[in-house]
Write a protein that binds this DNA or RNA. Structure first.
Lengths: 230, 230
DNA sequence: GAGCATCTTTGCGGAAACGCAATAAACCAG
DNA sequence: CTGGTTTATTGCGTTTCCGCAAAGATGCTC
């Protein structure tokens, strides 16, 4: 399947929404495409930030890794979202590793091209400010959760967020459309896969969720929300 | 003491560095000043984001609060740093509460003024992208720490970061130049004041730090660093 | 400088969650 | 369908850290 990078797509991305039509051709002209297979790495933590990516199709995962190999999932990235934001501010290295969790098609720009585009079209820079602000905010909320909440509640928040972000309505409830192991959930909630497994088992008992291998379906989102809140 | 908002100051801020000289007058003309006494609130979480502030003198603290009143300290803000970044992307409400921890003087701009300035001078928008990216990165690192590290190490990281950010060399070591209670440290490290107190006592025993009421002096930064790292 | 408010220390008991280990289930390849 | 790999479950002992409580220190106000 060939992907034609058209204006509608660009206008739906967080980085290029509301950009004047005249700029779209220039944006397209400066872009490249890159395919990544599920499991492949887009870039690694510490790599020099040479390119910025926008997800066209598929889904990516951004992680932070410690020196001794421990990992935390920062975020999943879906169509229209940006990976490699460090490229925008020039110079540095990527603060995290980004991996494809499904086969994905990415549109990319070099740092130099992005700087030129942002300088000429202020709305692109404004969009960058907006999405970085939003992600910063997300992280603040997560820090508050990690600091003040007990594990079960954190897992509930994580699952609800994922359902929101990548949920698909089905007969049994909202299915999270990402292959999601217990380990993954643990790395998003700041706990261990054991505790996640125990918690999900308890929830399954109460018919709040139903889950399989790398799969979670939220049956009673409202009950889950009440676990997350009160 | 009167503060004259001059070009040198603006050029040293994270938001207005490297802005063409011609723009500085316009920036100054659009600004207001606001004094806040220690302990006073600059804006509250949930308030509509009407203004953006740059710290001229003094120090602020940004916090996130839960519905039930639990707090987490996101960050301290010193001279040259921005409070109220949400104002840049328009519309929303402040994601956290900002309070002065010392008497402070703030320079402020309305959202409309900032939008105009950013649209006309792309370097301002680029600076905003840079500092938001940096803060987002900071938060990612903290999330990794909260998720994977034990309490003592987290406290060590927090203290070292504060020493870096607001440290003052003295005979006894690097003194953190912010009044800093055990509770404050707890809210930055994701633990309780009790655990912070116990940990600091143990460190004081080993002469790694020396501390008093709302005061911490790092005597052996290298030992603290080794606690934080391995 | 006496009294008060705030902040800090420390002991102790207990809950929460970790981490090991062993088993079970699901999926894949040939 | 068979063997191997990955993923998930669950029991159990252990550790970490919380949270109460009470006493002690520090600094500020009048």
């Amino acid at each position: 399947m060939d992907f034609h990078l058209n204006s509608e797509f660009l206008q739906g991305t967080e980085l290029f929404r509301d950009v004047p039509a005249a700029a779209l051709h220039e944006i397209q002209a400066a872009s490249s495409q890159r395919r990544v297979a599920a499991g492949q790495v887009v870039f690694r933590q510490g790599d020099p930030a040479g390119a910025l990516y926008v997800v066209a199709t598929g889904r990516l995962r951004a992680t932070q890794t410690t020196a001794d190999g421990q990992q935390v999932i920062i975020r999943y990235l879906g169509p229209g979202e940006v990976a490699g934001y460090t490229t925008l501010s020039g110079g540095g290295t990527h603060p995290g590793t980004v991996t494809a969790v499904e086969d994905a098609l990415l549109i990319s720009w070099t740092g130099a091209a992005m700087k030129k585009l942002m300088a000429e079209h202020s709305s692109i820079a404004m969009n960058a400010v907006a999405f970085l602000g939003a992600r910063y905010h997300e992280m603040q909320v997560r820090i508050r959760e990690l600091s003040t909440e007990k594990v079960e509640r954190r897992i509930a928040h994580t699952v609800l967020r994922l359902a929101e972000q990548a949920g698909r309505r089905t007969a049994r409830g909202i299915e999270i459309a990402i292959p999601l192991s217990r380990q993954d959930l643990a790395e998003m909630s700041g706990t261990t896969l054991h505790t996640v497994s125990r918690t999900l088992s308890a929830w399954e008992e109460q018919k709040i969720v139903s889950c399989g291998r790398r799969r979670v379906v939220v049956a009673k989102a409202n009950v889950l929300a009440s676990i997350a809140e009160v």
